[in-house]
Every structure is written in C-alpha cells, then in structure tokens.
Amino acid sequence: MLTDATRLCHASEVAEDEALCVPAPAAAPTPGEPWFLVRHGGRLYGYRDDCPHIPGSPLAWRRHAYLSGDHQRIVCHAHGAQFEIATGHCVIGPCVGLSLTAIPLALAPDGSVHFDSNAPHPQHPPHPPHASSASNGPYSRITLTKDSRRQP
C-alpha cells in the first residue's frame, strides 16, 4: 500500500542523469537510513547509500553527489568503486563483482515515488558472475511516463 509512510519524493524531483538522496521512510526496515534515487534512461532506480566494499560507508562525497562526472555510473567517492546505474553492480574498483542493495520502488498515479514495502527487500545484494548482464529484479526500478514527470 502506498502511503505517506512509504513516500520518498515526487518523480519530478529527480532530473534525468541526476541523483537525489532521500531518507528511508517510516515503513522501511531501517527508517531514516540514507537511500538515493537515480534517473537514467527514463527510469528511476533506488539504492541504499552503502558501499559493499566497506559496509556502512556512504557513497557520496556530498549530498546528492553519487554519479561520475559523465553521469553514466554511480561512484563511491571514498574507494573509487564504480557501479552500473541500471544494475548496481560494481564494474571498477575494490568491490568488483559485488552490488549495491536495490530499493524496491513503486510509482503512484500522482507521480510520487514510494518504497514498495510489499516487494521482497534484499538483505544482501546479489553477486552475479557476469555483472553487466545481471539485474536487481523487477522491483529495483520504475519506468517513468511523461505524466509522471509533472508536478502535482
């Protein structure tokens, strides 16, 4: 159920090829924990702000600064690790083969983005043998339509 207890932001708050830091909502397993959303290729992806190289280590060097200079990868600015935006899999750095923990997302009719508390929430990120071909599953991303980009 999508309620204020699961709301993260409005889809229009995340610009294409940008990231937005949001606190985990009250309905999350760890309320208040920093999460971030990235819009890339017309889709919205959600991840915990936690580098798998050193658990508990945040990725951004400043608020909302999660992406590489060309906005094509998520970067851990402490360790230099680089992650694919669409999968969260590390492709460069000390945690190659590990992944960010995806946040299951849902889009409400009014364009608000919510934590999908009914979806399975991974406790540990997947470690696929071929990071570039893997996926975090159907709950880690949402495709945005033209209507979902407007302010309510």
Rank of each mutant, 00 (worst) to 15 (best):
D50F: 01
D50M: 04
P52H: 00
P52W: 01
H53I: 00
H53G: 00
H53F: 00
H53Q: 00
I54L: 02
P55D: 01
P55K: 03
G56E: 11
G56R: 01
G56L: 05
P58T: 08
A60Y: 08
A60Q: 12
A60P: 07
W61E: 09
W61D: 13
R62Q: 15
R63W: 13
R63Y: 14
H64D: 15
A65R: 12
Y66W: 08
S68R: 03
S68L: 06
G69I: 09
G69T: 00
G69V: 07
G69D: 11
H71Y: 10
H71F: 14
Q72E: 15
R73L: 03
R73Y: 01
I74F: 03
I74H: 07
I74P: 02
V75C: 03
C76P: 02
H77I: 03
H77D: 13
A78T: 10
H79T: 01
H79V: 01
G80V: 01
A81D: 00
Q82N: 06
F83R: 03
E84I: 14
A86H: 08
T87D: 05
T87H: 02
G88S: 03
C90A: 09
V91A: 02
I92Q: 05
V96F: 02
G97Y: 00
G97R: 00
L98F: 13
S99F: 04
T101K: 10
T101I: 06
A102Y: 01
A102H: 15
I103R: 06
I103P: 08
P104L: 12
L105Y: 09
L107I: 12
L107T: 10
L107Q: 12
G111W: 07
G111K: 01
G111C: 08
G111S: 14
G111Q: 12
S112M: 12
V113C: 14
H114P: 12
H114V: 11
D116N: 15
A119T: 06
H121S: 13
P122D: 08
P122I: 04
P122V: 06
P125Q: 02
P126Q: 06
P126K: 04
H127V: 09
H127Q: 15
H130E: 13
H130F: 12
A131K: 06
S132Q: 08
A134C: 09
S135R: 07
S135I: 10
N136I: 08
G137N: 07
P138N: 05
P138H: 05
P138A: 11
Y139K: 10
Y139R: 13
S140G: 15
I142F: 05
I142H: 10
